[in-house]
Amino acid sequence: MTTIFGVPTMALFGQILIGLINGSFYALLSLGLAVIFGMLNIINFAHGALYMLGAVTAYLLLNYAGIGYWPSLIIAPIVVGCIGIVIERVFLQWLYKLDHLYGLLLTFGLALIIEGVSRHYLGSAGLPYTLPQSLAGGHNLGFMFLPNYRAWVIAVSLVVCFGTWFVIERTKLGAYLRAATENPSLVRAFGINVPRMITLTYGFGVALAAFGGVMAAPIYNVSPNMGSELIIVVFAVVVIGGMGSILGAIVTGFGLGIIEGLTKVFFPEASATVIFVIMAIVLLVRPAGLFGRGT
């Protein structure tokens, strides 16, 4: 058996693959957080809960309506996106003039509500989500075995992340969005409906999280706790990357996923804490974050 640094290549590349998958979710979620923070000045604590809600929606669609994975990939983000729009209109819009901390507290409350309701109806244990037939199986690449579904998750996440980057940085709509982030009142003076843009931004960011949730469902099972564990790691990712740059959020997300995977191979005891340790080091060396501007 081939080995690298005394570790079988199969295990090494297997863990890198898992790292890339985790990294996809870190990237999708931190991207959404950054876009929402840019427009709303709110750190969306409910992001993890809405990611979980995406997975739960897919589970309910499959088991109660017989709607499979592929339609769910579209339907669940739309459903959760609409919930996000309602949340923004009913709750968040009253907070923009207040200190940022109130946004964190309110969305933390929303996360508790969503998680509590899900736990009541689904229980705390994970529920299995059947893999779609078309993505079952895998390929032996010689140095490792690559399951089709995992390859699909990584590829789609990359496409979605870079698609988002492209829309924000390279299109007219994105230019409006960036302008409204910099100076909302000036953009409003040009006749652009900024409050509606804010609402749609929140809906979009939340839909991204739900999309991640649907993709995670066949890998991790659907469980009400899946969001809260993830969101705290994503917060650390955001602190490391800084929220100033979209590309920075994507690179940091995938990079930290890989580092976490490698830690599982070489130093398994530290795999749960490595991202937090990196966060501490980054705070010491580059307090503004790797891609951050200011504080």
Partner: peptide, 21 residues
């Protein structure tokens, strides 16, 4: 070393780290 919202996220992340410990 960071202000406002980042301060909250850092304290949460450090607490989670020590939870895993």
């Amino acid at each position: 070393r960071r202000q406002g919202i980042y301060f909250a996220m850092i304290t949460l992340a450090l607490a989670q780290m020590m939870y895993f410990v």
